[in-house]
Computed example of a mutant assay.
Amino acid sequence: MTEIRYYKIGEDRFKISEDEVARRELRVAKVSDDVIQIQEEVHGIIALVGATSSVNIKKEELKELVKLVREEFGWDI
């Protein structure tokens, strides 16, 4: 099985209450020649599990994502 390598394209922290700060990290991996996976990890928030999933991407992170898939994954976008 091929090892999937993750590339970090974003990271930040934000205040969610008086005493708690959450940490967010955005990563991308090449799953196959025509599929990438974007993961957003948020630590510090108690969350409920739901049936939907979303990833928040900032403008600078999107620019980094496009650059990464061109240079590292060989995609012509």
Rank of each mutant, 00 (worst) to 15 (best):
I36E: 02
E61I: 03
E11P: 03
E41N: 12
I46C: 03
E61L: 00
A51I: 11
V21I: 15
W75Y: 13
K15W: 01
S54E: 15
I36T: 05
D33V: 03
K15N: 09
R27D: 09
S54F: 12
I4Q: 13
E61V: 01
L48K: 11
T52M: 07
S53I: 11
K30Y: 00
L65H: 01
E18C: 08
D12Y: 02
E40H: 04
G74N: 11
L26A: 05
I36A: 09
E25Q: 10
E25L: 04
R5M: 13
A51P: 04
V42S: 01
I16C: 08
I57E: 02
Q37K: 10
T2H: 06
G10E: 02
I16R: 02
V35T: 14
V21H: 00
N56L: 12
S17I: 03
L62M: 13
A29F: 03
E3V: 09
I36K: 02
E60H: 06
K58E: 15
I46E: 12
S53P: 02
A51D: 15
E61H: 01
I16T: 09
K58I: 09
R70L: 14
F14S: 07
E64A: 14
V49Q: 11
R23P: 02
K8Y: 08
D19E: 14
R5S: 15
A47E: 15
K8H: 10
E64M: 06
Q37H: 07
K30T: 05
G10H: 00
I57N: 01
E25Y: 02
D76E: 13
V55I: 12
E60I: 09
Q37D: 10
R5C: 13
A51Q: 11
E60G: 04
T52H: 04
L62Q: 10
D19P: 01
D76P: 03
A29Q: 02
I46G: 07
D19T: 12
E72R: 11
E72P: 03
E71W: 02
K15H: 03
S17R: 03
K67N: 14
I45Y: 07
V66H: 07
V55N: 09
K15P: 04
K67A: 15
I45A: 14
G44R: 04
V21R: 05
N56G: 13
T2D: 12
L26F: 02
D76H: 07
R70H: 14
R13Y: 07
A51N: 13
R13L: 09
R24L: 05
I77R: 01
K15G: 05
W75N: 09
E18F: 08
K30W: 00
K67G: 11
V21W: 06
E25A: 11
I45K: 13
E11Y: 08
I77P: 01
D76F: 05
E41Y: 06
I36Y: 00
S53G: 15
V28E: 03
K8V: 15
R24T: 06
A22N: 08
W75L: 14
D76R: 09
V66Y: 07
Y6Q: 12
I57F: 00
G74A: 12
L48N: 13
G10Y: 02
A47N: 13
